[in-house]
């Protein structure tokens, strides 16, 4: 139970007060923060609608003239809702959060190259190493073109993996597989995506070395 700082009523933990719709200083999981059931497949437009609707009610801009306690509740609950929206909006971060909710995560040493990517990764690393050792402009240029093609290939893999992730969400939500199996499958797919992300980042670092200050 939690006490509402705006109207003083006692109620169960939610993001907004049932009585006065004011913000409650709660610590909820990210699905509960947005008033959602725990499901992997979420409709982006619907998620945005919910996020906007809650923000309209609890954002600190609405409580500039309220007592300190209410302003603090507004700040805390808005930060939570914002984090919930950001995390759940993106399928990959949603999947990672799902693992976290179920007491697991991607291994720290996510270094093992997934076998289906091994050939691509090997090729890219070799091309990047060659680029570092090449100074002659025209050879650099042709190398850069080759790397750009590899980048496209990696990006295609990434797009496919993400599509598969979203497709699997629906399947997993129907609980056709056991929880343990589901988590293993989800983990494998997310680890592949994480690997591709690192690969793409490595390519980008080599080909556009200027990082914003």
């Amino acid at each position: 139970m939690i006490r509402c700082p705006s109207c003083g009523c006692e109620q169960s933990e939610k993001i907004v007060c049932e009585q006065c719709t004011g913000p409650l200083p709660v610590d909820l999981d990210l699905f509960a923060a947005l008033g959602l059931e725990r499901r992997l497949s979420l409709e982006p437009a619907e998620l945005e609608r919910i996020y906007h609707e809650i923000s309209r009610r609890i954002h600190p801009d609405r409580f500039a003239n309220s007592p300190q306690e209410v302003r603090e509740a507004s700040l805390k609950s808005t930060a939570l809702v914002t984090r919930a929206y950001r995390t759940l909006r993106d399928p990959v971060s949603r999947g990672l959060y799902w693992l976290e909710l179920h007491g697991t995560k991607l291994a720290e040493d996510n270094k093992q190259v997934p076998s289906e990517l091994a050939a691509l990764v090997f090729e890219v690393q070799e091309q990047l190493a060659e680029l570092r050792d090449t100074e002659e402009p025209s050879s650099r240029q042709s190398l850069l073109e080759t790397i750009a093609q590899s980048r496209e290939a990696a990006q295609r893999e990434m797009d496919q993996a993400r599509e598969q992730l979203v497709a699997n969400f629906a399947k997993w939500d129907q609980k056709s597989a056991s929880q343990a199996e589901l988590l293993a499958e989800l983990k494998a797919l997310l680890s592949r995506i994480a690997y591709l992300r690192t690969l793409l980042r490595d390519i980008d670092r080599e080909i556009e070395p200027s990082v914003p200050r």
Partner: peptide, 16 residues
């Protein structure tokens, strides 16, 4: 305009 929002004069507008 934002001062107006903070005074509670415009609850149709919200900045994120």
């Amino acid at each position: 305009v934002q001062a107006g929002v903070l005074m509670g004069k415009r609850d149709d507008v919200l900045l994120l």
